[in-house]
Design a protein around this nucleic acid. Sequence first.
DNA 1: TGAAATGTTGGGGCG
DNA 2: ACGCCCCAACATTTC
Length: 474
Amino acid sequence: MTVPVSIVWFRQDLRVKDNPALHAACDLGKIIPIYIHDTSLPEKRLPGSVSKWWLHQSLNSLNDRLNGHLQVLEGDPEKLLPELMETFNVEHLFWNRCYEPWYVKRDKTVKESLKDNGKIVKSFNGSLLWEPWDIENKSGSPYKVFTPFYRKGCLQASSPRYPQAAVARITYADVKNKGVSIDSLGLMPDIKWYDGIAETWKPGEEGAADRLADFIDEAAKSYKKDRDFPAIRGTSMLSAHLHFGEVSPNQVWYAILDAFGSADDNNIDTFLSELGWREFAHSLIYHFSTFPDKNFNEKFDKFPWRSSKKDLEAWQKGKTGIPIVDAGMRELWHTGYMHNRVRMIVGSFLVKNLLIDWREGEAWFWDCLADADGANNSAGWQWVAGSGADAAPYFRVFNPVLQGEKFDKQGEYVRTWCPELSKLPNKLIHKPWEAGSAELKQAGIALGDQYPEPIVDLKASRQRALDAFAEIKG
DNA sequence: TGAAATGTTGGGGCG
DNA sequence: ACGCCCCAACATTTC
């Protein structure tokens, strides 16, 4: 009697441990692990530049962990999967779910057509602590406010699945590799701009485990206090690893609880609630399929956005003349990452002080962030813009000078990313335009030369944003 | 997961 | 000693 063979379709679950689809397939018999670089997606749903770089590394890492058995394909999964099952004469196809609407639609089509042809197709939850359809309010609809979603919905539902023990042994079906090389996917850029990114990250399951271990050893116990300071390594840096599924949220959740248990001074609760925000974003994108593209609050459809290529580019390149904003945008460009506090500051600046549509910011982040994620990115931007679910009210305009003085008091973060300002004293580091000519001279800068004049007046642009908001409210 | 404007209070200088 | 003014410091409201 022959052992059943299953195709395991890896997607946003590029790991071997705690991988429910892989686990189920291994329980059943032999496996053929595959990854499909889906080129049938609309342009804007394809991974951005930094995500592609990451994916390249992560696929290599996964392939290593699968002893070189990963078959990598390129094209349309709806076409490729039936062909592969035919070629390999396989009856089973397993995967872990994705929740972005464009993936849900694709996967549904794949599943239905293969099932119609008598195949056994099973999907699993490998990426969320709670399934979006399991968390609903009393009237049976999805929560639109974070706190009740998390407290009443998630925390009072059944506990997340405990991570599975590693698969005892993976047995690969003895089949020819029908795929292409990872290199041939063209994920790596032609121009070598990724040195800073490569220095910052180690994509793959091992890199993810290292980050998690470091966080538990060093930052988790002071997370609540330290997480707001961009010059401190106070956050977990796990977002990209979570996005690519190199670690599951369940592994993170229980690693934290197992390490700190109930002896917690609420640093742990605060951190776990951030995983809750990730769940919330995925729930929103699942239940409201237009969330990534359209204002959740339709009032914003008539918001008078400005269109200024010049201002947008100054923001993108970190040349706005506002130090904390420029520091953040340069950190992003250099490392593929930006500290969350600074994401809020640069987001508020783009949407409110520059009055530029949040979707421009979303698109830039999509291209530049290593952790670019369809759910988190749109939820974050809609939150900042005030158009989202449980969003910051529009009138909550961050003052980047005050934010800098509050969260980067000594100016270390600004000095790291805007070294031309480094000789300014702390009292001027966040507002060089208030420096006198003697002070500027002493610091070795001339505004408009080494460092730009601010592209907007903070006070006037704040008022302009409030006026624009007044137009659409009511 | 704000900031600015406005209101209130209370201590100290001063006639 | 007292009332008056000034203005931090803090609290509340508004955007």
